[in-house]
Design a binder for these strands. Structure first.
Lengths: 112, 112
DNA sequence: CGGTATCCTTTTAGATACTG
DNA sequence: CAGTATCTAAAAGGATACCG
């Protein structure tokens, strides 16, 4: 899906959809919503199968869209914590409503 | 994004997201929600830039997911009408809620 | 009118190796 | 620990031409 990063001139639908549009974005939001903060490698472990490259890219997109916050602590070993912003937290119940819809209507459809 | 079409064994989140996940699926749902029924070429004209191949594929996916209905009339010239199913109509306000969220939070973010 | 068939390009995700 | 760089693979979407 083509991304148009001149987001100031985007319609809200396009913007919203870019926020939740990646393969891992929704699972990522779900895990973040269950934790006040979570570290990079803990996130990676909970997203079974994701690679570091993909996780880093997904996080960068969520941060750029203002729904995730990154905090780095100058410790040894290095500690980086991720959490939802207020706007990210507001999005969670809206996503959940769509998931609930899916749960109600999934059984109606036929497999290909 | 990899599609797993054995949808009987899918989690609701994955299912829901597949329904609204294509580049044109959301615009398509929007136009369908504004019309009781609409014909193939009218749909194509309203989706500026879509090709017949892509429109047909998107419609097939929406139909397979149970949110769109296709009715063909044996007339000359041929007439085919598309409309939202009940489950499709239920989905519309949930999508709108996310778009509204986008409208509120889009201005907060910085362009890349 | 309402598509399909074939081929091609763009976009997105993953593998692997390596670094501050 | 928390990434980056480079390369490769796989999807999704599009162009063009043609059909019932």
């Amino acid at each position: 899906m083509k991304y148009d990063f001149d987001m100031k001139n985007l319609c809200p639908a396009t913007f919203s959809f870019q926020v939740i549009g990646g393969k891992w974005h929704l699972p990522l939001m779900a895990i973040l919503s269950e934790n006040e903060t979570i570290r990079y490698n803990d996130l990676k472990r909970r997203l079974d199968g994701i690679t570091a490259t993909t996780l880093t890219n997904a996080l960068k997109e969520l941060i750029a869209h203002g729904v995730v916050r990154r905090e780095a602590f100058a410790e040894v070993p290095l500690r980086v914590e991720y959490s939802l912003t207020e706007s990210g937290k507001e999005l969670v119940p809206l996503i959940e409503a769509i998931v609930t819809w899916g749960g109600r209507h999934m059984p109606e459809i036929e497999p290909f």
